[in-house]
Write a protein that binds this DNA or RNA. Structure first.
Length: 817
RNA sequence: GGGCCGGUAGUCUAGCACGGUUAGGACAUCUGCUUGACGUGCAGAAGGUCGCUGGUUCAAAUCCGGCCCGGCCCA
């Protein structure tokens, strides 16, 4: 056995092993292996933003611990990594960086520029993921922008289309006038905002006026009805009559509707197509006409009359000014309102009626609910988030986007008869924006010219087939062997997107759950307790932490920072504690290695009481840590193992066997051998238990001390320890606890008397209080004398005076120095 | 307004599903010692109305009701 050096450069060790693991292929998934059970991680493909933040570090650590744990338990672990490349942020960054609009460049050039950003950021993120020490099989890497991935995304579109899940429809959709695209419900953020509530006079048929309060006077031209609450006595007599809208002079009906809140404004509400979702609901149930006053760019349409072409805000001001001139504006007051905004650019969203592609997701809600209840959730209560979300959806999923950098929709239209031409499987991948369909004539009318669909797919449409793609669908015949995934990790923030879309996509495609369990991580909070966000100035990127304390320290923060699923504050103190723990472990192993030079593993050892005490406690730690990891309770596992290592093993056990190791001539060679045996076994087990959490440090120690004997390629493929029942020894634990308590109390006595711990004690008399305690202490006389440096010691069964041993009120001792 | 989660020493957190130990731990603070693995480590001290309030019970941080506060998501 080699000894560990005194110096340990954790950062260097980490980078060394990251390289070697890859060269050794320790984490390669064996696609052909039919013996070991498989374990498949549905690794989230991060968006290449260029930032691998502590939130990424948290969730990657979670499932890397799971992957390593399962691998050691004998599973053939498929731990892939992809990147979710498409999307608005990159387009926006490209537009801003080059100061261009996506429409000003040829399609391919613009996509080329986007790709440059993605290339750069993927390199950064791949490095960051590797630097965290994730046990990923990098031969599985995929990128959603690659033609091969397009093929799969497009194939899933075609299959769903054929199954009737995909339809084109004119529906009210959330629209971002800045990004000029439809966005999904999940992408709408609700923000409190200060707005103005204007009270405007509408003219009744009899020439009188009624006041209506609205925050959006620019939608007067879209007003299709006016509603009052059915029980509102003030307006009973007007229900069913007409009322004239100022600025347009159009008349609409006054209707009774419970949506109108009698206490808000004047109690009279405009129904416009569309101001918000309430309008959508009212317009639909009452079959009201739809008047679109706002266009895709956020400008007023010709429906707005003289205000046409004005931007929304401009139109609002102009209308208010005109109303004021006409004496139709009663008042304007400030109010707090909730505004739906685009999650990317924070522009208030509009609801437009537009042709879009949809996926029928709502009809799957009962199945989503059933599946969510069938699978396992860590922690369990998180399943309600998915179920509540699915139940609350009012619209199907809008899957088309009016952007560029995304997977194209494989559709063309016949120029003459408008027939939809759906690509065939063999044509994929295909970009209709560049390529015509591979048929000569329209199958319906025979015309030979086609118009491409220029809309593209929502990026969630790419990433929501990950479970099938990881398994090798559609190319591997045996992909069902690796499907469903065993674990799907998700942040609390993306349950309603990724976890949900995965579920509906796979249910629709394969009628089977995409994942057997869902592992939830909370959000990372900044040191100020608020969500970690760049804009809040409390942001810390993982390279900053790792370059200071290393990945193993950062991983300990992630594992131990709080209960799985709860929000975890980032704490430097936790990382530093982790770092100190690594050093403690290193030194304990180094100490052992110095005393194990002549040790040869053998079964033939007669263990001392304290050896059996330690091994019994260790067996229980194995048991507790294993069940904690099975339940993804990383904090409990980490605490259990670290406390055992630091306190039980280092502080109590090692201190209590030093005399045996150093002075075999006094205490006997066999007692030294017993201590060696115990050290050798205990450190190996500790390293294994810690390996999923701190893979680098444990590997370095394993390779130096144990590899030669144990012969595993890496500690990460060594078999996970099974709690050894034969080592569990209640009697040894009971006795050992008393002995350790006495030793600690004597050390405490020295500390209280301000004496150095190696002070020789002239005389110690222990009053054990009972014959049984005396018997136990007599068994360990040497350990007490040797550990506490006692010249003469007497153990008496009787009760006596002196210092009381903590937790053992009958046991006391008197010490002379 | 609805749903979910949380409220435990200066800070953060465990315990709560199955009520009963002196409410465990980390950081920070203070005090000693530095022992032949430890760029330190060890030992100790101080710090708590377990959000508030009612109830169930011999017994509540834990179970039930109400309220207050915070977070997240949604309307």
């Amino acid at each position: 056995m080699k000894t560990l050096p005194k110096q340990c450069d954790i950062l260097k060790i980490e980078e060394k092993w990251q390289k070697e693991w890859e060269e050794m292929g320790v984490y390669h998934f064996d696609w052909k292996d039919k013996h070991r059970p498989t374990y498949v991680v549905d690794t989230p493909p991060p968006y290449p933003s260029g930032d691998f933040h502590m939130g990424n570090a948290l969730n990657h650590t979670y499932f890397d611990i799971v992957a390593r744990f399962k691998r050691m338990q004998g599973h053939n672990v498929l731990f892939p990594q992809g990147f979710d490349c498409h999307g608005l942020p990159t387009e926006v960054e490209t537009e801003e960086h080059y100061n261009i609009k996506k429409t000003e460049l040829p399609l391919e050039e613009f996509i080329g520029l986007c790709n440059q950003f993605v290339d750069k950021y993927i390199t950064i993120m791949r490095t960051a993921i590797k630097r965290l020490g994730c046990s990923i099989d990098w031969t599985t890497e995929y990128q959603t922008r690659n033609p091969d991935y397009w093929r799969k995304t497009q194939l899933s579109f075609i299959l769903l289309h054929k199954k009737g899940y995909i339809y084109q429809g004119t529906h009210p959709i959330n629209w971002c006038p800045h990004c000029e695209t439809a966005i999904a419900d999940a992408e709408v953020e609700h923000q409190p905002k200060q707005g103005q509530l204007h009270t405007i006079r509408f003219q009744l048929e009899n020439g009188q006026h009624k006041a209506i309060a609205t925050t959006r006077p620019e939608l007067l031209s879209s007003c299709v009805a006016v509603a009052v609450h059915p029980d509102d006595e003030r307006y009973q007599k007007h229900i069913g009559k007409n009322i004239r809208i100022p600025t347009t002079n159009r008349a609409v009906k006054i209707v009774a509707d419970e949506l109108a809140d009698p206490d808000f404004g004047t109690g009279v509400m405009m129904i416009c197509t569309y101001g918000d979702k309430t309008d959508v609901k009212a317009a639909k149930t009452r079959k009201l006409p739809i008047i679109m006053s706002i266009d895709e760019e956020g400008r007023m349409t010709e429906k707005a009359g003289k205000y046409a072409n004005l931007a929304i805000e401009e139109a609002r001001r102009a209308i208010i000014a005109d109303l004021e001139k006409q004496g139709l504006l009663e008042k304007s007051e400030l109010i707090q309102q909730e505004v739906g905004q685009c999650w990317r650019c924070r522009t208030p969203i509009e609801i437009l009626e537009r042709k879009q592609w949809f996926m029928k997701t709502r009809q799957l809600t009962p199945q989503v609910e059933k599946t969510a209840n069938d699978i396992k959730w860590y922690p369990d209560y998180m399943k309600t988030r998915l179920i509540d979300w699915a139940r609350s959806l009012e619209w199907d999923w809008v899957i088309s986007r009016q952007r560029v950098f995304a997977t194209p929709i494989p559709i063309w239209y016949c120029r003459k008869c408008n027939e939809i031409i759906l690509a065939e499987e063999g044509w994929l991948p295909i970009d209709p924006r560049k390529d015509p369909p591979k048929i000569k004539d329209c199958p319906k009318c025979g015309h030979d010219q086609f118009i491409p669909e220029t809309d593209v797919l929502d990026t969630w449409f790419d990433s929501s087939i990950s479970c099938a793609v990881h398994a090798g669908w559609p190319d591997r015949k045996d992909w069902h062997r690796f499907y469903p995934a065993d674990v799907h990790p998700s942040g609390t923030d993306i349950i309603r997107t990724w976890a949900y879309y995965l579920m509906v996509r796979h249910l629709a495609l394969f009628n089977q759950t995409p994942y057997k369990s869902c592992l939830i991580n909370g959000m990372v909070l900044g040191t100020d307790g608020r969500m970690m966000h760049k804009s809040l100035g409390n942001y810390i990127a993982s390279p900053e932490v790792i370059s200071k304390y290393g990945a193993d320290a950062a991983r300990q923060w992630a594992a131990s920072g709080g209960a799985t699923g709860s929000d975890i504050p980032f704490r430097w103190a936790d990382v530093e504690y982790g770092w100190r723990f690594l050093r403690k472990l290193w030194n304990a192993a180094r100490f052992a290695s110095q005393h194990l030079q002549d040790h040869r593993p053998t079964e033939n050892v007669k263990l001392e009481l304290l050896d059996r005490w330690l091994l019994s406690k260790l067996a229980k730690v194995v048991q507790k840590a294993t069940s904690a990891l099975e339940e993804c309770q990383f904090n409990i596992a980490a605490e259990e193992i670290r406390n055992f290592t630091w306190h039980t093993f280092c502080d109590s056990y090692i201190e209590a066997v030093k005399h045996r190791l150093y002075k075999p001539e006094t205490y006997g060679e066999s007692k030294r051998k017993a201590a060696q045996h115990t050290l050798y076994l205990a450190i190996y087990r500790i390293l294994q238990l810690l390996a999923p959490i701190i893979p680098h440090t444990t590997e370095e120690i394993y390779q130096t001390l144990y590899a030669e004997d144990k012969r595993h390629l890496s500690i990460h493929v060594s078999p996970w320890p099974v709690p050894d029942k034969t080592l569990m020894d209640e009697e040894a634990e009971r006795c050992g606890d008393l002995i350790i308590a006495v030793i600690e109390e004597i050390r405490r006595d020295k500390a209280e008397k301000k004496k150095p711990l190696n002070t020789l004690m002239k005389n110690v008399t222990i009053y054990a209080g009972t014959a049984e305690s005396a018997r136990i202490l007599n068994l360990a006389q040497e350990s007490i004398i040797g550990t506490c440096k006692i010249a003469k010691m007497k153990i008496l069964a009787q009760k006596g005076k002196g210092k009381e041993v903590r937790d053992y009120p009958n046991v006391r001792f008197v010490a002379e120095y």
